Lab assay of single mutants.
Amino acid sequence: QLNAMAHQIQEMFPQVPYHLVLQDLQLTRSVEITTDNILEGRIQVP
């Protein structure tokens, strides 16, 4: 299920590496919260 959620987020934010999306999802278990984390700059994109 997390993989499906990660792919959904990757479609919206292809610039964010998959492993970072998955790592955040493991903590949040939420597409909405992880999306917010990306938008708020809480996930550092190399």
Rank of each mutant, 00 (worst) to 15 (best):
H7W: 14
E40T: 14
D36R: 15
L27M: 12
E32M: 10
N37M: 02
Q8R: 14
L22C: 08
L20Y: 07
N3V: 15
V31M: 10
E40P: 02
V21Q: 02
P14Y: 03
V21P: 01
V21A: 05
V21F: 03
G41W: 06
V45Y: 13
Q10Y: 14
Q26K: 11
H19P: 07
F13Y: 08
L20T: 05
V16W: 08
A4Q: 11
L25D: 02
Q44K: 12
N3H: 15
I9V: 09
T34K: 00
L20C: 09
Q15P: 00
T35P: 00
A6E: 01
L20M: 09
D24Q: 04
V31F: 10
P17H: 04
Q15T: 11
G41A: 05
Q44D: 09
G41Y: 06
H19Q: 09
A6Y: 05
N37L: 00
L20R: 05
M5T: 04
H7P: 02
D36L: 15
H7Y: 13
L39V: 09
T35C: 12
D36C: 15
F13T: 01
M12C: 08
N3L: 15
R42Q: 04
E32D: 09
F13W: 06
Q1P: 10
F13A: 01
A6S: 04
Q44L: 12
Q8G: 07
Y18P: 06
V21D: 01
M5A: 07
P14E: 03
I9H: 00
T28P: 02
L2C: 09
H7M: 14
Y18Q: 07
Q15G: 11
R29K: 11
Q1H: 12
I38F: 04
R29D: 07
T28E: 02
E11D: 09
Q26W: 14
Q15C: 15
L20P: 02
M5R: 05
P14A: 05
D36E: 14
H19T: 09
D24G: 02
E40K: 15
Q10T: 12
P14N: 05
E32Y: 10
V45Q: 10
E11M: 15
S30L: 03
G41K: 06
L39K: 13
L20K: 05
P17K: 04
I43E: 00
Q23G: 07
E32H: 08
E11C: 14
F13H: 06
Q10I: 14
R29F: 14
T28V: 01
L2R: 03
Q26I: 14
L27T: 10
P17N: 06
I9L: 10
N3T: 13
L2Q: 04
I43K: 02
V16Q: 02
I33N: 07
F13V: 00
L2S: 03
I43A: 02
Q15L: 10
L25T: 00
L39D: 02
G41Q: 06
I9W: 02
A6G: 05
N3Y: 15
N3C: 15
Q10W: 15
E40S: 15
R42V: 04
D24F: 06
A4Y: 13
L27Y: 11
L27F: 11
Y18W: 13
Q1L: 13
L27K: 12
L39E: 05
Y18T: 06
V16P: 04
F13I: 02
I38N: 00
V31R: 08
D24K: 01
